[in-house]
Nucleic acid binder design. Structure first.
Lengths: 220, 220
DNA sequence: GCATATGCGTAACATTTGTTACGGTATTGA
DNA sequence: TCAATACCGTAACAAATGTTACGCATATGC
């Protein structure tokens, strides 16, 4: 069994290849190959299987009801595709999934996934943890958007990453601007203003909180 | 066994009370009661149990690192509390949870939850579906935020809810404004402009797409 | 009937944010 | 060393959004 197939099984992932070969753990699945630019799934397709991208890379695209295409993201193996939605009510692919290079994809029927969950605690826990961690990413992002105004977002982000008056931005300004959903120059300006107003000191990704009260005020 | 305890079990939820009493399905759990304004959980507390709000209502609050409090949401029974994070890596309550009226809360140890998942397919599926549906809500919201500019958000929302040239907003303008993270008058203005420019007709929550091309253009 | 609350559209104005363009620094690889 | 690239700060101006206030409906309860 392919090691990547065991992505979700926290127990199995740490076994040696020898141990894996001796393992009596068979999950019903089929493997498909896709050439570059082939569609692995179309937006709206019902999700009946767990899709595991074993090798290669895909891009996902969203198609609006009458044809505009907007890129969403790039996913590299090994990774599940739309795993979060497999068990959703009326679960369908929210995007097109297209191979950007030759890919190998394993499909595991939902029933087999459920069976594996019931019989293999590591698999169950792996899946749940993967889902939960992903949910946390989304949830954190939503919280950022809950703060109106760039300075409020920045202030919130700083308070989250604060440790004894110091903080690290943790990412490039360019990256953060995308994360916040604002333009880079705007974010840059916002930070400059925080510095100008004596609320923080900042340089090169690291900073110090000078006026905690004002910063808290901004985070609303 | 309390019917609310079986929130996640799609099989059990549809049984009659008689059937429930005869059911040989015992989940290890303890039940606590909380008076109004009592803390059920503090932000940062490790999550070791599944919290099920059986009766009453809670509010969640977020506390920034130095004390500001911002309200997040109200949750009414029956509902799980932070269920999405139970299996996260280093899972902790992201918010304070405070009773707004007398509450009853069942706590089921994580290990018992895992055991129940392994032995009761309905429970497993119920939990997974709940998580997945919730993930979809968050995911949809993130997608909205991915569209910059109010008109782009509105256009996207309309295209999502379009059906043969007609659409329903589905919510009040006030509600949508919050959902989009913009001010109500701003949203109102944006819609008015779409109408003024002959792109849509709109009245009372329902509308018609007049210029699909322009609308698609706006959704980027 | 009346007071109250909610939801909605509108307007004028203030503020924030986007846009575009430029220059500077650091890194990388030829 | 040099060119190419990525990342960042800044500025001036344009555009979008927020703010505040008002009037009008509709529902609700007294």
């Amino acid at each position: 069994m392919d090691r990547n197939m065991l992505f979700f099984c926290s127990f199995c992932r740490h076994k040696t290849d020898d141990e894996l070969h001796q393992l009596d753990c068979h999950i019903d699945h089929s493997i498909s190959r896709y050439e570059r630019n082939r569609y692995i799934a179309h937006q709206g397709d019902p999700i009946r299987d767990l899709y595991m991208l074993l090798d290669g890379q895909v891009r996902t695209e969203m198609v609006s009801s009458t044809g505009i295409v907007l890129p969403v993201s790039i996913i590299s193996a090994p990774a599940p595709l739309a795993a979060a939605f497999l068990f959703a009510t009326d679960s369908r692919f929210p995007v097109d999934v297209i191979a950007t290079e030759p890919c190998r994809v394993a499909r595991i029927p939902r029933s087999a996934v459920e069976g594996q969950m019931a019989s293999c605690p590591g698999f169950l826990r792996g899946f749940l943890t993967f889902s939960a961690d992903r949910m946390r990413l989304l949830s954190d992002r939503i919280k950022v958007f809950g703060h109106k105004g760039i300075k409020s977002k920045v202030a919130y982000h700083i308070l989250l990453n604060e440790h004894q008056g110091e903080f690290k931005m943790g990412h490039s300004i360019t990256w953060l601007a995308e994360y916040f959903g604002v333009e880079r120059p705007s974010l840059s300006r916002a930070i400059s203003e925080l510095v100008r107003d004596g609320i923080i000191a900042y340089r090169n990704g690291n900073g110090t909180i000078l006026n905690a009260a004002a910063l808290r005020e901004m985070a609303l």
